[in-house]
């Protein structure tokens, strides 16, 4: 067994896992954070996407021991403690960007990372940026629109003081 120390959603956590334990199973089975879903076994679907030190990562592709010392953000750590959705979650809600919702946590995490990385996202950028996250329900159009809406919100928030939109 291996001792792994993580900061998950701002909270220090230590867990004793088999060395082969995937990060996603450590989060789900050992820490009870079941919001991160598993949709495949080939790193294709992105349902398990989380942020590792601020960057999106497919948590089924990473061993828990590889994340030792890292800061992890899962979908449970995204909304405000009172349940207020963050701008990406809110945009998904407003644009009807989810149906069954199984891909949604991974999609939201990937979108947050994408918006963070590319301040000037356009539609083509969103579509290629989310290529690693599969959704079977929505046909993606509303997801793309939601990410563009959230990106615009982020751009407005980040605009220098005094600048006009």
């Amino acid at each position: 067994m291996s001792l792994v120390t993580l900061t998950v959603n701002g909270e220090g956590r230590s867990l004793d896992v088999e060395p082969r334990t995937l990060l996603v199973h450590a989060l789900r089975d050992h820490l009870g954070l079941t919001g991160t879903n598993i949709g495949c076994d080939s790193s294709s679907c992105g349902a398990c996407t989380v942020l590792v030190d601020g960057l999106s990562a497919k948590s089924c592709t990473m061993l828990a021991v590889q994340a030792d010392g890292a800061e992890i953000t899962t979908i449970e750590g995204v909304a405000e403690p009172d349940g207020t959705l963050n701008s990406v979650q809110q945009a998904f809600h407003e644009c009807h960007a989810l149906q069954c919702g199984y891909c949604t946590p991974g999609m939201v995490m990937a979108a947050m990372s994408l918006i963070d990385e590319y301040p000037d996202l356009d539609e083509a950028g969103v579509r290629s940026g989310l290529e690693g996250n599969l959704c079977r329900c929505t046909g993606y159009q509303n997801i793309v629109d939601a990410v563009l809406q959230a990106a615009a919100t982020a751009a407005t928030a980040n605009a220098p003081a005094g600048s006009t939109p």
Binding site: T34, G35, T36, A79, G83, L85, F92, H93, E94, T104
Partner: peptide, 17 residues
């Protein structure tokens, strides 16, 4: 807008696994 969304958007929804 759908009332189903918040639980699914925050990881609160429970699937079998």
């Amino acid at each position: 807008l759908r009332r189903e969304d918040p639980a699914l958007l925050t990881g609160e929804a429970r699937f079998v696994d």
